[in-house]
Amino acid sequence: MTKAIVLGASFGGMEAIKNLLFMLPAQCTIPIVAVLHIGNNTIDTYLSMLNKNSHYNVKEAEEKESIKPGNFYFAPPNYHVLIEDNFTISLSTDEKVNFSRPSIDVLFETAAWSLHNELIGVLLTGSNNDGANGLKTIRELGGTTIVENPETAFAKTMPETAVKISHPHFILDLKEIAGKITELTNE
């Protein structure tokens, strides 16, 4: 059974995550933890907009918070998000990974270590290489991996690298991803 979804996006990600979230049906309450490379100044408005317009409780991930259904957590700007074995969140100010903090790889890797096959990893649009190795780890440890189709993604470098490195289970257009998540979490 899937316990959580981890989600990564970079350039073009604000729009992509918004669209994905709005397409998820109301009965889908699986917790989602996301890293979106986004500036410090825009995050608050963005999160409250998502929160207002979706059935998820959208919030910034907090140190030592337990991960709960119905919540959609975003990494705070300038902090890595890690998932612990006891299904809580840790933050860290370690050096940047892939020139990024928060880094998608850090989230994906630590999530895979704690959740193995009870995890879905989703990587969307972006123009750097973050997330590919993390997605590979998710796959190796038994989780399900989905990458947005590089051909139709807003920026293709990130999904393209991930496809090459991680050989994901599914490569889908953005509008198909919500359906796939629903299907996988209903099993």
Binding site: L82, I83, S90, D94, V106, W113
Partner: peptide, 9 residues
């Protein structure tokens, strides 16, 4: 210490 953090390092 945070296990996820240690394990990464």
């Amino acid at each position: 210490y945070s296990k996820a953090h240690l394990k990464r390092r």
